[in-house]
Amino acid sequence: MSVTSIFFQTLIGGIGIGSLYALVALGYSMTFRSMGLVNFAQGSIYMVGTYFGIIWYQGMVMNLHVPYAVAFLIGLLCNALLGIVLERIFRPLAKLDLMLMLLATIGLGFILDNLFTIIFGATGFAVDSPLPNTPWNIFGVRVLPQMALLIGVSFALMIGNQLFLSKTKWGRAMRASAMDFEIARAMGIPTNRMNALALSIGCMMSAAAGILAAPIVYVSPSMGVAVGLKGFAAAILGGLGSVPGAIAGGLVYGVLEALSAGYISSTWTQAIAYIVMVVVLMVKPSGIVGEITVEKV
């Protein structure tokens, strides 16, 4: 393979894993902008969503082998309901200290992770791809069909979400509610329900990421730990609370990870990604998309 095609190969891999991070980062950002809360259980929610969908596809429930697309929708729906439940749990948390908030969501993640380990066992399983396993060859770059599906659907979801937020009545009400809680409430917007909607969307995005990636990665109850951390990093990289920021942050993080694995050293990939993240935070704490804020004295 030529130098350029290796580069593009790496890039496609980075965009694939990056769109996964971006969807999880969206979960963080939707929760943060609506409730002012950093949900450290987002990684677990990603894991839970994956199971909600994949168990139907893999025939783990009553030996049903439903089509992948249907399993995908079931997973999204289940996680949407989870989002509504979460809003109710988080409501009293939103008023608390950052540290307490952080711990409660970590505790929630702990519960979900271990509950799923009890139900499904600690060892994971591989998932068959609904699409053929032979990679397509596009100008010398080999792309797995599942990877193309992951990238395509992720982008469609992200664009759809953005359109929903900016163009529809509900989306605008959600944005108003996120911007100023008190005013939105005074205007008669049901803020709690808007928050539930925001959380539901975030949870659905995470489920989508998990179910799309399941045939590429490995499904286990601990699959959310690393992704949760990286999704958070991506959200912060893009500017926590910003929707386009989450997407940009996820993609940048994914590409960065892939490039450092491909060109520097695969053992040091993780460390390099961490360090770059630290450096970005130091240089521009508001994230690569966020605005500069002057600290009020």
């Binding site: 950093v38 950052l98 952080l102 951390l229 958070f232 990093a233 912060i236 926590l240 053992t267 040091w268 993780q270 460390a271 961490y274 360090i275 993240m277 630290v278 935070l281 130091m282 704490p285």
Partner: peptide, 21 residues
Amino acid sequence: KVRSHYLALVTIALGEAMNLV
């Protein structure tokens, strides 16, 4: 330079990087 959850994240990242060493 950074505070609250940003600092939490930075220290998590630095700790994990050290663990990788």
